[in-house]
Amino acid sequence: MSNTVVKCEKVEKTYQKDSVPVYALRGVDFEVNAGDFVSLSGPSGSGKSTLLNVIGGLDRPDSGEVTVDGVALSGLSESELTELRLRKMGFVFQAYNLIPVLSAQENVEFILQLQGVPQAERRERAEAALESLGLADMSHRQPGELSGGQQQRVAIARSIVSNPVLLLADEPTANLDSGTTEDLLGLLRRLNEQENMTIVTATHDPIVMSYTKRQVHLRDGAIERDALAA
């Protein structure tokens, strides 16, 4: 197997909006290699979220094929897709990432628990993940007792604690101020550089793009530009 983590071939996705077709993705060919740190940018409605969702198996393309870590997603049932996400992917959304009744520590352990990891190992790994994101002394707080930036850090801790092959983030910094945004991006860059974590993030924000190794620009459901950072 090559070091290709994501492979999109001629991926098309059309939505119907008031019986008018909306072309969200028009034949996207796109590959992500292990160790990539990719930003998906483009105007609102250009298809960033749709592409991320299709890669994450949250949405199915109308045609074309998406392959993640060698598994073709079109052949999987809904529950197999859920299982695939659990085993291979980490997700960070713009908001509402955490289970409000669980502490930071429990939110991070949650994924490991779903994976069937034994308790002692679970605790150790969750503590390590929180520690690496500078959240060690907040591990017992519930999401409601954390700031937006802290919540997003917990979400990142949760998404990486299971060592996924791919981390998908949809506008993870959209609700954060610029200082906090830079903190978070610093963490993502460190993850990418030190742990070789493959990251794809959708964003509007030039600051975010400036942190990524590769910038993919979408327009009207097609890739307009795909460039490595200078």
Binding site: D69, G70, V71, G75, L76, E80, E83, L114, G116
Partner: peptide, 24 residues
């Protein structure tokens, strides 16, 4: 495709979720 065919790519292990589910 059956789940067995996915293995080991997408392996579904039965988990002990009672404690988790109960707490939440």
């Amino acid at each position: 495709m059956s789940e067995a065919a996915l293995s080991p790519a997408v392996e579904s292990r039965p988990i002990q979720a009672t404690g988790l589910v109960t707490r939440i």
